[in-house]
Amino acid sequence: METSREDVGIVIRSAFLKRGTQQRFSLFALTILSIILIFLETIDFKSLNTIRSFVKDIIYRGASIATYPSKSFSSFYQLMENHINLYSNYKELITENEELKNNISKSDFLELENSQLRQLIDEQVASPSNLVSARVMLDKQSPYLNSFVINIGGNKNIKNGMAVLDGKIFIGRIVDVNFFSSRVLLVSDLNSKIPVLSQPSGNHAILSGHGTSEPTLEYLSENHTIQDGDKVYTSGKGGIFTPGIAVGKVKIDKKKVKVLLFSDLSQITFVNINLGELNK
């Protein structure tokens, strides 16, 4: 039997426009509402931003409560794993400690020399007091977006674009600010592009995330001299981030210049936000 156009029309009307069994809204109305919402997201208007911030803050709080059981379970699992690996971790720490002891004197000298050289060129040395601390409230890594939510926002003068650090290590930037929460876009995200500088080779590049834990260096000059083990720092180009914040070290793999991050992005509980450059 051939299905006429009218039959298809009736089916579509029945499925999309009618409310159906115990449905309060029609699919069509909600679809239009979703499209309007997507469109509204592209509009930067003060009262709209206030409503958005309010809605997001409420949902973040709710989500933070809902994720509590899974968070507790994963911390318990982590604790057990740490206990099991106690002996091997202890041996690793002893070796690491020896290496660090050897490096301390060298690092002190370099730091002194660096600050003297900076004074010579009249560059202002970044003050560590410009940091504000925050706690990671929600860490739900979407496969499409590597980000997390922290528990401070507009209430602590947080602004879009500020650098986010794990201790003193660069891990990402603020991309969305609400009243009491903000979203941090991690360096590993596909949408993250950070201007960096390699040391000691001194090459400028863009650190691009790919959704994995190993971002790569892009837009390097053709005759670059980057080598395995070179350190990567923020370059401060574009004036967004303070220059010289450590990011990771270079690992060249099949001609791709990968960066092994100094910070383990999956294990972050507290972060520092650099208010420095943007608050001036």
């Binding site: 509402l33 499209i35 309007i36 997507i38 509204l40 997201e41 809605v55 709710g62 969305d176």
Partner: peptide, 18 residues
Amino acid sequence: ISDVVLGFPLGINALSLL
């Protein structure tokens, strides 16, 4: 809720679920 939690613009997950 998914859009907010995962950090997408509002309405994207809602529309695809609909």
